[in-house]
């Protein structure tokens, strides 16, 4: 630590005592017992195992099949290296597995994650409930991240309403939030389309997505010749993998359809109340 912060550091060290930290559990409740009774009530044994993911050292840029044992159930998974495939989780609710892009895994689990509570509270900048990082201008985003920031160049979408940058992914993660557009309904929080980009590096951070539930449909697609997936029909959860190889569950409060695809060394993701055709048109315009 630079010497110039010496005094500030001393002050901060002592300052912790002055802060009104809440006690765990609050009045008359005990956090540990609450958690335990919740887990017992839900019979929430760890739901699935993706241990195999860790031993998988590299994920090529090409879509590949893979399979794993999930919880007690054996599993099948389905994916051709090229071409189109459709999968309905409802058709085989005992089946789980994952599909991968570089830097992205999509895990299918037998039961859906609990629905995200709708955002509430006073009005804030569009998308601020999505924990996307700090609101910035496009220029600032470009300065903050280590790659050229791309965005959809399609008149129907126009400019993003708010741009966010987050360091939660190494190299930076940029998110662009769009409010209602002609032909694209907005969701409860006002967001119609979310476009996210980050650099996926092998052996580094992996964005992992679990999808679940009846009606989840996953389709392999190509965007400008590069592999991607179109996922529709169910809320989902994200899991980020840290540089230490640990997976961190994380949930994003948006439950639209999702297109996720590769673009050179970036992984791009487009989410919202979009039809597949709309999503592919927007994705194809990204530059």
């Amino acid at each position: 630590m630079a010497e110039r912060f010496e005094q500030l550091e001393r002050v901060l060290g002592a300052f912790g005592r002055a802060i009104d930290f809440p006690a765990a559990g609050g009045a008359g409740t005990d956090l540990a017992s609450s958690v335990a009774s919740r887990l017992r009530a839900e019979r929430a044994v760890p739901r699935f195992s993706v241990r195999g993911l860790r031993s998988r050292r590299t994920l090529g840029p090409v879509v590949r099949p893979a399979w794993h044992t999930v919880a007690a159930a054996s599993l099948v998974i389905l994916l051709a290296a090229a071409g189109t495939l459709s999968f309905s989780a409802s058709a085989r609710d005992a089946v789980a597995g994952w599909l991968g892009l570089r830097g992205v895994h999509i895990t299918i689990v037998p039961s859906p994650p609990p629905p995200s509570p709708p955002p509430s509270g006073p009005s804030t900048p569009l998308g601020s409930d999505l924990a996307l990082g700090q609101a910035v201008t496009l220029e600032q985003a470009q300065q903050l991240v280590g790659y050229r920031v791309l965005r959809p160049a399609i008149a129907a979408l126009g400019q993003p309403d708010v741009v966010y940058e987050s360091s939660s992914v190494e190299g930076g993660l940029v998110s662009m939030v769009y409010g209602a557009r002609r032909g694209i309904a907005r969701q409860a929080d006002g967001v119609a389309v979310l476009f996210v980009e980050f650099r996926a590096r092998l052996e580094r951070r992996v964005l992992l997505e679990k999808f679940a539930g009846p009606g989840t449909t996953i389709e392999a697609v190509r965007v400008n010749g590069e592999p991607g997936f179109w996922l529709s029909g169910a809320p989902h959860e994200l899991v980020f993998r840290g540089p230490d190889g640990q997976d961190i569950p994380e949930s994003l409060r948006l439950a639209g359809n999702v297109l996720v695809w590769e673009h050179r060394d970036l992984v791009l993701r487009l989410e919202g109340n979009l039809t597949k055709a709309q999503a592919l048109r927007i994705a194809g315009s990204v530059r």
């Binding site: 765990a24 956090l31 699935f48 860790r54 230490d244």
Partner: peptide, 16 residues
């Protein structure tokens, strides 16, 4: 905190 403990429990299988 409570939600995080529950999520962590469910993710224990992925904990190294």
């Amino acid at each position: 905190a409570q939600e995080a403990f529950v999520k962590a429990y469910r993710a224990l299988d992925r904990f190294r």
